[in-house]
Simulated assay, not measured.
Amino acid sequence: MSKLIFSIALLVLVQAIISVDGILHHWYSDANATFYGDMEGRETMGGACGYDDLFEQGYGLMTTAVSPALFNNGYTCGSCFEMKCVNKPNWNYCKKGSSPIRVTVTNLCPPNYGQGDGHWCNPPYKHFDLSMKMFTTMAEYRAGIVPVLYRRVPCHKQGGVKFQLKGTPYWLLVLVFNVGNAGDVSSVSIKGQNGKWLTMSKNWGQNWLIGVNLVGQSLSFKVTTSDRKTLVFHHVAPSHWQFGSTYEGKLNF
């Protein structure tokens, strides 16, 4: 009986270890990694997630593009992965003693259907196209491409969730970034001080759109992440908010 109780307790402990903040930490082995850009990351700025200057927005060089199988039409943008290089027979390009790296999804690795199944970012392949800095942290530059183990991990961010506002008086496009824990965003609602909550539509990447004139009203946001956690940010942008400006909520996930 005591062995049964011990086994149950051990199982509960293992489940607690692999599930932190609702994010499963299983390792997967069905992916490869390459790199793009230079060591300064100049070619990794911008991209299909809608982020702009990755240094100013807190992502830096710890970033990756992912294939469509992982990109999920942009819903994976902002999520964090840990990975490590794997040596295989006649394939020994991993740096000895290197620790697993952590990266945030900030771009799409576009498929090349002209190459058919020969291109690593074509469906259904799972692939990470890392910044050069992160790739060479775990693998030799000359390798070009390496097999990896990977898993989702919580995103650790400083400060609150941030909202960058763009558009015209007739429509508003909001980039949501610096999101902690799950990192990605599954839905966004907005409310002007004179109105009710309105559901925003996902435009592209992590840009969310509303076709309502909210100029002159303070703005509140309701953000839900993929782990079904929701936070409400009251009056994040003051009534005199400006297009092109970024406003920070006081909370993070």
Rank of each mutant, 00 (worst) to 15 (best):
K95D: 00
V223W: 07
R151Q: 06
D129H: 03
I18Q: 12
C155V: 04
L175P: 03
G74R: 06
N207I: 09
G60W: 00
F6H: 11
G192K: 10
Q206P: 02
M138D: 08
G114E: 13
K202D: 07
K96M: 00
L173C: 08
I8D: 01
F233D: 10
R142D: 12
Y113F: 13
P154I: 00
S239P: 06
V86C: 05
P169V: 07
W197N: 12
Y113T: 14
G249Y: 04
P124L: 03
K250E: 14
C49R: 01
C85Q: 05
F71K: 12
K3M: 13
C109Y: 10
L108P: 03
Y75L: 15
N90W: 11
Q217C: 09
D117L: 10
S98E: 13
A143K: 00
V146H: 00
Y93E: 04
C109H: 04
F233R: 10
N73K: 14
Y28G: 05
G159L: 05
E56D: 13
Q206L: 11
G118W: 02
G47A: 02
H234R: 13
P123L: 10
Y125T: 06
F243G: 12
L4S: 13
M45Q: 15
T104R: 12
I145A: 11
N252G: 11
D21G: 13
G46Q: 09
D227W: 01
V179E: 11
N73A: 15
T199D: 15
G114P: 01
W197M: 13
R151K: 09
I101W: 00
H235N: 15
N73D: 15
A16H: 09
R152M: 03
G41P: 07
S2K: 15
H119N: 11
V148R: 02
K88P: 00
G47F: 01
A69Q: 08
M134F: 00
E82P: 02
W171N: 15
P238L: 04
K196H: 15
S245V: 04
L198F: 11
F233I: 07
W208R: 13
G192F: 12
H240I: 10
A48W: 00
S2V: 14
N107S: 04
G116K: 02
E40K: 15
Y170D: 14
T76S: 14
M45F: 07
W197Y: 08
R102C: 08
E43C: 04
S186C: 10
G183P: 03
C85V: 05
V66Q: 01
A16W: 05
F6Y: 07
V212E: 15
C77F: 05
L231C: 09
K84C: 04
S218E: 15
L108C: 03
F233E: 06
W120H: 04
E43Y: 06
G114T: 09
G116V: 02
L198T: 11
V174M: 06
Q217H: 12
Y75R: 14
P89Q: 11
P169R: 12
Q158F: 02
Y59P: 00
I190G: 12
L70R: 04
G37V: 00
I5H: 06
I18Y: 14
E43H: 10
A48N: 05
V232N: 08
P147G: 02
K222I: 09
C85L: 08
T246Y: 04
L165R: 07
P154T: 02
Q15I: 11
F243M: 14
D117H: 08
